[in-house]
Write a protein that binds this DNA or RNA. Structure first.
Length: 268
DNA sequence: ATCGGGACCTGCTTGC
DNA sequence: TGCAAGCAGGTCCCGA
């Protein structure tokens, strides 16, 4: 589920718990994408949460002696609940801080809870590309990295080594806004069009962030409320419906095993 | 190096 | 109505 806007919305939602001290760790099901490390129940209580950062779709909960790395996978969400709230079937992990708990719910269990003393050097984070909303990312980034690449541009911008945080929804939406056909070969796109695409990626992510992300099925804010960017989609999930710009029927196809939506008239 | 496909897991929707 | 197949916001890992 969560792409950058949803993870960043989550980060902002849990930011207020920074400064608090962990009183307990509850692991109800350690079998996530990777096993939740044993020993957190012992090592975290008494430790103060210093800060909460985000890198790509990873949330980084910083402690003095290391960092708790969390990923929401496809169906994960984090909520702040009263610690005594009864846990649902898919509530796998709680970070308890006195009367409240940060609770991870993840039906599909593609999410992760990991521990690292040096997260930026962790194998999962080490080779990540630039943050799309920061100044280090622009059309030049995409143009340079794409030379000689034959993959579809949609798969190319979903590659975390190129740029992070762009998942299936926002890849589709950004390509529509840029007027680029998702199946076009990455290496055959001009610098001018990549400049446009980079701007559209930033714009799409910012618009989504402003709307509190997209709630399709599982994603909720840390207070349980929903995002509403799904109401603004131009193409994602709109197979057969009229393009909001030109009224042509939106088409669906596959690129890299992911559903891909485009307008045959607006995108080339 | 790049690529395509399979894998991980549950739940909901679709079609026979 | 029941059941199986197909699909879902991510991304690692393997073999070609």
């Amino acid at each position: 589920m969560p792409e950058l806007p949803e993870v960043e919305t989550t980060r902002r939602g849990i930011a207020p718990i920074a400064g608090q001290t962990v009183t307990a760790v509850i692991v109800r099901n350690a079998r996530l994408r990777w096993p939740v490390p044993a020993g957190l129940q012992r090592s975290l209580p008494g430790r103060r949460l210093r800060a909460i950062d985000r890198r790509a779709k990873y949330l980084l909960l910083r402690f003095d002696h290391g960092t708790l790395i969390m990923h929401l996978g496809m169906s994960g969400s984090l909520r702040i609940v009263p610690a005594a709230t009864p846990a649902g079937v898919h509530d796998h992990f709680d970070l308890v801080m006195g009367k409240i708990a940060l609770r991870l719910r993840d039906p599909r269990r593609f999410g992760a809870v990991l521990w690292s003393a040096a997260p930026e050097q962790h194998a999962l984070l080490r080779d990540l590309g630039p943050e799309p909303l920061e100044s280090g990312f622009d059309g030049g980034t995409l143009y340079t990295a794409s030379r000689g690449r034959r993959v579809a541009v949609k798969q190319f911008i979903m590659d975390n080594r190129i740029v992070v945080g762009v998942g299936n929804i926002y890849a589709n939406e950004s390509l529509f806004r840029a007027g680029i056909h998702p199946h076009r070969s990455a290496g055959r796109i001009s610098q001018a069009r990549y400049t446009q695409l980079a701007a559209c990626i930033k714009e799409t992510l910012r618009d989504a962030l402003r709307a509190g992300g997209s709630t399709l099925r599982d994603f909720v804010h840390t207070d349980g409320s929903e995002g509403y960017f799904q109401l603004d989609y131009f193409v994602y999930g709109r197979d057969g419906l009229a393009c909001r710009r030109c009224k042509s029927p939106i088409r669906v196809s596959r690129a890299g095993q992911r559903s891909t939506f485009h307008c045959p008239h607006c995108q080339s």
